[in-house]
Every structure is written in C-alpha cells, then in structure tokens.
Design a protein around this nucleic acid. Structure first.
Lengths: 190, 190
DNA sequence: CCTACCGATCGGTAGG
DNA sequence: CCTACCGATCGGTAGG
C-alpha cells in the first residue's frame, strides 16, 4: 500500500496510472483500485509520501542547530541535499507536480500548494527570527531572502534535469552561503 | 496551421492531443493529423513557436542597448516581462515542458533543452563581455551569475502558478537589480 | 480536408 | 484481492 505509493512517487506525475502502478507491483488493476477510492486518492497519497520525505530530512536537520541563522542555514542545506539525492527520475517531486498541477485546480493542486507553502513558511519564520536575534541585518526582508533561497533550489533541480549540469547543486550551495553571508550582520561570525 | 500550434502552445503540455486540438480549431481529428506527421511533430512545432515568442522579445530588447552590462540587464528584464505576460494558463512554456520532458528522452526534450540552453548561453556571453569591459568585477563568474538570474525567473513563475503571489515578478526584478548591482565594479555607474 | 475505422489504454464498477 | 466488463479517449491509418 505505502509501497505502492512509493513506486507511484518514483513514476512521478499524472502519468501515474492505476493500470501502470498495478503492473509495477504485480497486482491486477482493480486490486490497486480497491486500495484507493479513486485515482485522485492515489495521487494525494503520493504527494503526502513525498512531503514526508523532505519534511523528515529538513526538520531533523533543523532540530540539531540553534534557532535563528544556524537553523536557517541547516534547513536550506538539508533541503538541497534532499532534492539532490531523492532519486526520482523526474527530480524534485514538488517541482514536477507543482508545474503539472499549477493550472489544474482541485485537491491535488491544493495539497501540493500546501506542502510547498509549508516549507517556505518555515524558512521565512526562521529568517524572521534570525533578524530579530540580530544575526541577520535589520534591512533583510525574510520574504525576499527565502524567495532567493527557494529559487536556487529550483534552478539546481532544473539544470540537473535538463542541462546535465552535475555541478548545479554545488553552485546552488555556494550561492546560498554567499546569500546568507551578505545578509549577516557585519562582524557577526556566529 | 500556425494558429493551431498557437492554441496548442496555450494548452501547454503532453495533454495537447491531436483530438483536443482538432476540437478547439473546429476541424476533424484527421484534418489536424494531416498537417503534422505525428503528435511529436505537433509538439515540436509548439515548442519552436514558444521559443520564437521569447527570442523576439529578449533579443529585440538587447539590440537597443550597448553590449555588456546594459544589454545583460535589458535581456534579463525583457525575459522576466515576457514570462510575466505570456498568458499561457500554465505560465512559462519552457518551465512547464522542461519539467514534463526532463525525464523523457527524445526529440521534444532535445528541442526544449536546446532553446533553454540557448537563452542561458546568450546571457552568459553577455556577462562575460561585461566582465571583460570592466563593468562587472573580475571575480564575477558568469556561469553563476546567470544561474542566479535564471533561478529568479523560475521562482517568480512558480510562485505565480502555485502560490498566487502577484508580486512575485516585482520581487524577482528587484533581486535582479541587486544582483547586478553587487556584481558591478565599485564606482562604475554606467 | 473528411468519415470510418483499428488497437491500445484509461478510470471505474459489477459481481464474486 | 480477482475476472470481466463499460464508455471514453488516445494516436494513427485506410480510402476517398
């Protein structure tokens, strides 16, 4: 069942058909259909499973560091590492499904949006805290900082998928370090 | 014919079926099929049409400015403007198709990759020139600068599609300005 | 450019 | 969990 959803995740998209999934796990088509009320239910299960994957990594990495800048830094890096190593053929699951369902209103899109916003909100929250703690400059806008962090991850994923750029994630990591460095309060070396 | 490809473009993806397109332009299915050797040919036509759309805007904007930093700046802005105003339901055509065909080898993927790389190469070339002209600092890496510029556009597109962030393109534009500002030779106000 | 057809695949259900 | 079926849609072709 969750093994089915995992293989579903690996396949990636709307092309994840009940029939195809059935073949892959060696069951009859209606055997799979019995586990999910509809194709949409299967898609939602795949989305939630993928979300669990990065949530565990990102928030586990966060727990190990003090709140504020160190935690923000750790979350951004853990998130890049996770995308780099997911191993789905289509790369980052949320980049793929977000792009696919961005223009298709419905529960699947809503779920993808929810998980995406959830990560962004967590990063913004941590950035806001870092500003409050004086670790990041007063004039740093958390919204924009996280915009840039998220952008770098998207770009690394795109370049690996499309441009065979094996160093894409290293470039992204270096840019993240620079970005946080420039936002850091002068003289602060925490 | 090119009107068909245009509506095809608007629809966006693999879901662009010959049957669906036929309905949309009021022809029979095989009437459309006769114009394209195969579905793949139709997809390639749509990709090329979309590429023409941004090429015209970006390279026209470039022609009006002197080579180097001014031209790089103009290209980045024209490109953001184009993505913001394409009007395809799925947003940026190349973000959508790139994500969809990134893991599907074949002529369609190759064509999407070619157009994507083409724009990136043009931006990098201009950045390299700006360094040579002394408009950008010596230690600026064109590859990484364009990585960041491209990342901002991807993120703006994603946020509009997924997060109903109407100011996403304004944030991206402001970040582009900052990025080029920081890369600029100190004291240079060209 | 059309009608009419093909084989394949889809999501879903009936009935067990 | 299965077989067996449904109506719909797909890409593509035959024949005109």
């Amino acid at each position: 069942m969750s093994a089915a959803a995992d293989l579903a995740t690996a396949e990636g998209l709307e092309g994840l058909s009940i029939a195809r999934l059935a073949r892959e796990v060696g069951m009859s088509k209606s055997g799979v259909a019995a586990h999910f009320a509809s194709k949409e239910t299967l898609q939602l299960a795949a989305v939630d499973l993928a979300a669990e994957g990065y949530r565990v990594q990102v928030f586990e990495a966060a727990r190990g560091r003090e709140p504020g800048l160190p935690r923000l830094h750790a979350m951004a890096m853990a998130w890049l590492d996770h995308i780099e190593h997911v191993g789905f053929r289509g790369g980052c699951f949320f980049a793929a499904t977000g792009s696919e369902f961005g223009a298709r209103p419905g529960p699947v899109r809503d779920r993808v949006v929810h998980h995406t916003r959830s990560l962004i909100d967590a990063l913004e929250e941590e950035a806001r805290l870092a500003v409050r703690l004086g670790e990041l400059r007063d004039d740093v806008e958390p919204h924009r900082l996280v915009f840039q962090l998220h952008a770098l991850a998207q770009e690394a994923n795109l370049r690996r998928q499309l441009l065979d750029d094996p160093g894409a994630f290293d470039v992204a990591r270096a840019a993240v370090v620079d970005l946080l460095d420039q936002a850091r309060t002068r003289g602060d070396r925490s």
